[in-house]
Every structure is written in structure tokens, then in C-alpha cells.
Simulated assay, not measured.
Amino acid sequence: MADTVLRSNQHNKALHALVLFGLVLLMQRAGATDYKVGGAKGWSVPNDPNAPSYNQWAEGERFRIGDSLLFVYPSDKDSVLQVNMDDYTNCNTASPIATFTDGKTVFKFSQSGAHYFISGNKDNCVKNEKMHIIVMADRSNQSSKSNQTMTSPPPPPSEMSTPPSPPPSGSLDIVPAPAPVGEESPSPPAPPPSGASSIFLSVIGSFGAFVGSSLLLVL
């Protein structure tokens, strides 16, 4: 009985995991788009002059990161090359970024910007079997980064950049200006006499006046 219950629980867990995995795949697929290049004709040399070119078709779509291109072509006669802009312009098949020859190539966009594709057959490329696609940037990530930048508080001011406070009023030291070259600084004035010196001089003066008066009377 216990083994039966254990097996039932394991079966339920496995089933739940499988359902969850399927939901994740569906969510990923819902956010991405698959584009078949060339529609029913597939990846081939354009023969109808009235039909839109690959670039005209690409300009009417909005490609995003995660979207995929499906190239369908005969693998024994054609191929797909991912190239840079110069090789795209000149139909240079000698140095591609990537080469696909399986006949049913799926190319998934992993980054934004320009992507260039040409036929591996140079004659086909010259006949306009080539395509230039622009993948849009992920605006949601850029918006979140911009919001974080705008809402982040400014950094605290540096202690070194704070100007020193001026000294309080009345506390400035007055430094006398130096004397001109070749001239001596004037001597400081003599200090005034003290009170004891003044009394002594007064007594001496009085005594001198008394002696002088006595000498006059004697004479």
C-alpha cells in the first residue's frame, strides 16, 4: 500500500513538472515571432519584378530580440550566409560570419542592430537574393535603467570640498607690515613711568626746592 502511494506521488510530481515545463515553453513562444523569409516561395532569386524585395518585406516588420527567421531553400543549390555590411553590398561570399546549408535554416536574433544575409551563390546574390534586417533594441531594459538613474539620490558631498568656515569677528591677528628695505623700524615708545617713580621724583623736587629757599634766607 505504501509503495503504491509513493509511486502515485512520484507520478504526480513528474506530471506537474512536465506541465510547468510546457507552460514555460508556451510563454517563451508567445513573446517571440517566427518569420518565414520569402513566404511560400522561400529563399530564392526574386523573379517577379512587381513583388516586393526582401528588404521591402523586412522594412514592413518589427523584429525584436528572440524572433526567428526561417530560410527554406534547396540545400544542393543554395545556402544562407550571414555577412557584414561590406560583404552584403559587394556580394562577397569568401568570408561570411556564419554559413548555413541545411535547406531549412532557423536563425534566432540574440542581439539588436543590423543583420545582413546573402545567398551562398554569388550569382543569386547579384540578382538580389539578399536581405538587410534591423532588430529593435529592448526598450524595457533601457527604461528601467533610465528610471533607476533618475530616482537614485545624489552622492553626498565630499568632506574635502567643504570650504573652511571664516574666523569669528574680532579674532583676527593684526600683523604689522614690514619696514621698507634700507630703513630701520622706529623704536617703540618708552613706557610711561610707574606710580612709585612719580612719587620719588616729586619728593626729590620738593627737597631741592626747600634747600634752595633756605640758602636764599641765609644769604
Rank of each mutant, 00 (worst) to 15 (best):
S68K: 09
S68G: 11
D138W: 07
N124A: 14
L69P: 01
S79C: 09
S187Q: 07
N121S: 10
D173T: 15
L217V: 15
F21W: 08
N12C: 10
N12D: 15
G31R: 15
T162Q: 11
S53P: 12
I133L: 01
V80Y: 09
F63K: 02
D34N: 10
F207K: 10
R62Y: 07
V211E: 05
W43T: 08
D123P: 06
S206N: 08
L20E: 13
A17W: 10
P164F: 01
P46F: 04
T105D: 03
D87V: 01
L217C: 10
A14V: 08
S152E: 14
K122D: 09
G205R: 09
R62P: 01
C91S: 02
K104F: 01
P74H: 13
E184T: 12
N141K: 10
N84S: 03
G182A: 01
P193Y: 07
K122S: 11
V181D: 13
Y35V: 03
D78V: 04
P193H: 01
D67H: 15
K104L: 04
D76H: 14
S214H: 11
G212A: 13
L18V: 11
A177V: 09
A114Y: 09
S206D: 11
K145V: 06
K127M: 05
S140Q: 15
F21M: 10
S171P: 01
P193V: 06
Q82F: 06
N84F: 02
P155F: 09
A30I: 07
K13E: 12
D78T: 08
V203F: 08
N84V: 08
M136A: 12
S44G: 05
S197T: 00
S198I: 15
N92F: 02
L172E: 15
T151V: 11
S169P: 02
K13V: 07
L26Q: 12
L217A: 14
L25T: 05
Q111K: 11
D138N: 13
A2H: 14
M27Y: 09
P166L: 04
H16Y: 08
F210L: 06
P157I: 08
D86I: 12
F107N: 01
A114K: 07
N50M: 15
D173F: 05
A32V: 08
P180V: 11
N55E: 11
A2Q: 14
V211W: 08
I174A: 09
K41L: 15
V37E: 00
D123L: 10
M136Q: 15
Y35H: 02
Y54D: 04
G208E: 05
P193T: 06
C91V: 10
S171D: 07
F100P: 03
A51M: 09
T105P: 01
P167D: 00
S144D: 05
M1N: 12
N124K: 07
P193A: 03
S171E: 13
L201I: 12
H16T: 13
S197H: 05
S161H: 04
D173L: 11
D48T: 05
L172G: 14
K127H: 04
P155V: 07
P193G: 04
N90D: 08
I199D: 06
P167N: 03
S144R: 14
S112C: 11
P178V: 05
F117H: 05
S165C: 04
L25V: 13
N12V: 12
P49L: 06
P188W: 02
G60T: 08
N141S: 09
N9P: 03
P74Q: 15
